[in-house]
Every structure is written in C-alpha cells, then in structure tokens.
Design a protein around this nucleic acid. Structure first.
Lengths: 238, 238
DNA sequence: TAGGCGTCGATTGTCGACACTTTCAGCTTG
DNA sequence: CAAGCTGAAAGTGTCGACAATCGACGCCTA
C-alpha cells in the first residue's frame, strides 16, 4: 500500500456525516426564520425532504435540542424553541458575562491584525447602515462581537457565544430589522472598540455593558411585539 | 365550561424516554470515573449491556457530545473527552464569568432561606473535611456553588454551570481527593459566603476570583499529574 | 346544543438488518 | 527480527419496519 495518505489533505469530500449536515440545515432554517418559533419539526417530513432516513434527523434534532434551538416534547416531537422576554434577559445576562471577559482579554492580547479586523468590521457596519441593509447589518454586528470572543482565545467561550447568538437569532431572524435607525448600531459599537484599543479594563466593561444593555432593550421590545398579548387563557366574559 | 380537570393531576409517570436514561447513565459513569478519559464508548456494547438497541444510545451520545463529555470521531465512534491543562483553564475562565455574576446576583436576592442553605452547606463541608471524606467533599463543594448559581435565577446560567461542572468532574472524579488538606475547602469558601452576606459586590467578586483561582491551580496540578509526559509524538531517535 | 367517548390516521420510539470502515491478529517478506 | 501485507472480526452509518401513542374527527349522550 501507499506510504500513508499523502499529507495532501485537501478536499475531504462528502463527509458521510449526515447528522452534521442535517443539524446545519436545521440551524440555518431556524436562524433565518424559515422555521418560526413554536413550529413543529416533524422528523419524517425533514427526512423525506432531504431524501434520507429518520435516524440522522433524530440525532441532529438532539444536538439542536441541547443547544436550545429545539425543544423536545416526549411522544409529540421536536418544536422550534419559543423565546419569552425572560429568555432574552437570561441570554443577555450570559452574553454580558462572556463578552465582558472576552473584551478585556481581547484588549490584553490586542494585535495590529486584530485591531485592523475589528475596525474593518466596524466600517462595514457603517457602510451597511448607510445602505440601510438591515439583514446584513445584524450579521455584521454578530461578526464584530464574534471577533472579540475569538480573540479572547477560549474555544469554549466562543462556542458558548455562538450558541447564545443562535438562540437570539431565533427571534432576531424573524424581522431582520432590529434598530429603528441602523446607524445607531455603529454608534454603539464605536466606544467599545475605542475602549479595547485604549486597553482600559474598567472602561471596556462599562462600554460593553452599555452596548449590550441597549441591544437587550431592543430585542426585548422586539419579543414583546411578537407576542401581542401575554394573555394566559383566552376567556370570554359572560 | 367546568373548572378544568380537578386539581388531582399529580403523579406524572415515568416517560419511557430511553435516551434520557442512557444519557444519565453515561454521564454518571463518566463523572464517577468508571469511564476514564479517552476510553471508547462503543454503542453496540452499551446497547447490549442495557438490553436495548443502538438507536437510543447513539442519540444519548450526541447529547453528551454537545455537552463536551464525549467526543465523536467519525467512523470510529465516541470517546470520553480528554482534558488538557488548557481545557481546565478554559473551563475555569468560564466558571469565573458565570460565578462572579451569580454570586453578585445571589447576594442581591439573598433570602433568609438561601442564606441558611448556604451556611448549612458550608457546615456540611466542614464536617466532611473533619471526617476526611474526599469524594463527598467534592460533591458538597459542587452543591455549594450550584446553590449560588441557582439563586441567581437564570436557568440557562445554571445549566451552563452544570455542564462546566460535569466536564471538570471528568478529571476530578478520577481521584476524588482534590485538596491536600480537605479543610482548606471550607476555608476558601467561607469568605465567599461572608461577602455574599455582606452584599458588597466588589468584595464578592474578589473572593470568588480568589477561591476559583485556588481551585483552578489545584485542578491544573491534578491534570498535569495525570498526563505524565506531554509528549507530542512518540518518535524514536534514529 | 355542548360536552364526552371511541375510532382512525399520522407520528414517534425503538428495533433489527445491511453495507462499508476500521481494527487487529497472523502471515509473509526483506 | 522488524516491518508490511492480508484477511477476518468488530463496529459504525444508515435504512426500513413495527408497535405504541398522540391528535383529530365524528358519533353518542345528557
């Protein structure tokens, strides 16, 4: 036989891993709003549509369940997670914990390359804001925050951030337009980057807190607007 | 319509959810050290042993994979996660983020009941330390921290904490004895509780930082002692 | 007419089967 | 004697099937 797989390791095509592919498809469908919160994810239907059997679909659903994107209801199936205002609050509390640390750590490790990447991302947001392209702005916003988390050099923290962002996009993806004035996004990010560049921990924390606080209020408002009346039970007055 | 089903509805009978049960069994086996890091988890063997088919085992393994307890190696199966010193560092960074927030929040919401529970837990640790019962001390330690996270009132944060604790117990469970002097555990927890009772945010953060810093060093030392030589590749000198 | 009950279709939970890979022991070879 | 090759055994990835269960529809009963 040949001398071991030549280290050409290039296009590992067709990973036979259907589970990952299904998980990715479902995730995309959810964060892009094609699958609305509360929607049922019938495994048979998904399997038919993808031309595969139900087993990989079930396993993928389990993955997404433990990521919080789906909710398993025994004997009834999987449903797209519905987020309440409290869920959003919880998610932002976690983001605060994570991003405070990530931003401080990113500042400590700030390299010219990272700094350039962050500034580029901020410019991109400004540009998109000028064009008023709400969907891609949300994406650019996400990438900015992700860069910071990546720079902190903690793989688990990055995965956690990705998970939190995915969950949040369950609701954010529904509309795409988050801020009334898109340019506000760039405005609230600017001081964060400035603080990171200055390398002043307390200031970094303060600005991250402020920025996420603004974002949290926006998303909570969005969620509240999506659940018209928080009525408990439809009850008619006799 | 009537006042709905009379409030009798109580004894929720066990859902026949094999996946949950398998996941729990595997988790227990891992954190209790019956399945050592790096050990292969052969689905066929597990299924045989439990007298069920492979499908539920696979789904349970997926759950544990996304929790970080198992690692999936395509076409080769699932393996118990191996933790490096850097993994431990990452986990403790995350714990720091979470527990700082949780402790401050717990102090803000401190009730007499919670305070009593925490103090009771601390007393328990002291008692166990006197008896020199390393295994249960680790468990009591975990419960103390968990109480604080629970008190913060963020379900996701609690789940995150549980996940982090599980991962850490992959290595901690191996030995059971973490501190050279068990009584040191109670000693390093005491100021944390005192700070929470005092309700002084900065002091809380400082003491949580210190306590987790000590614990981190202990666990890193433990991990280092478990991986005798961090050799990269076994290579013979020609 | 409103509410309860039984039946039917659809879906889930679980199983056994099959093809393809990986692993490993034994044999061959330089 | 070590290293490489060969074949079989074991294990994974995926599939289709079957029983149990859930939800809905329609019928029966006060």
């Amino acid at each position: 036989m040949r001398a071991m797989s030549p280290p050409v390791g290039l296009p590992v095509l067709a990973e036979s891993d259907l589970v990952r592919q299904v998980a990715r498809r479902l995730t995309d469908a959810i964060v892009q709003g094609q699958l609305a919160p509360g929607a049922k994810v019938a495994e048979a239907a998904v399997a038919r549509e993808l031309g595969i059997s139900r087993a990989p679909v079930r396993e993928a659903a389990r993955l997404l369940e433990s990521q919080g994107l789906l909710k398993a209801s025994p004997r009834r199936g999987f449903f797209v997670r519905e987020l309440s205002a409290q869920d959003v609050d919880e998610l932002y509390d976690l983001r605060l914990c994570v991003e405070r640390h990530a931003a401080v750590e990113a500042a400590r490790r700030l390299t010219p390359a990272l700094r350039a990447a962050l500034r580029r991302q901020l410019d991109l947001m400004r540009e998109l804001a000028r064009r008023d392209d709400p969907a891609t702005i949300v994406e650019a916003d996400y990438q900015f925050h992700r860069l910071i988390c990546e720079a902190a050099g903690n793989a688990r923290m990055l995965r956690l951030f990705d998970g939190l962002a995915s969950e949040l996009r369950i609701v954010i993806g529904l509309i795409g337009r988050l801020y009334d004035d898109p340019r506000e996004i760039a405005r609230t990010h600017e001081p964060v980057l400035a603080a990171i560049e200055a390398g002043h921990p307390e200031r970094i924390v303060a600005h991250v807190d402020h920025h996420l606080g603004v974002a949290r209020r926006e998303v909570v408002r969005l969620v509240r607007s999506l659940t018209p009346t928080p009525r408990e039970t439809r009850r008619q007055i006799p």
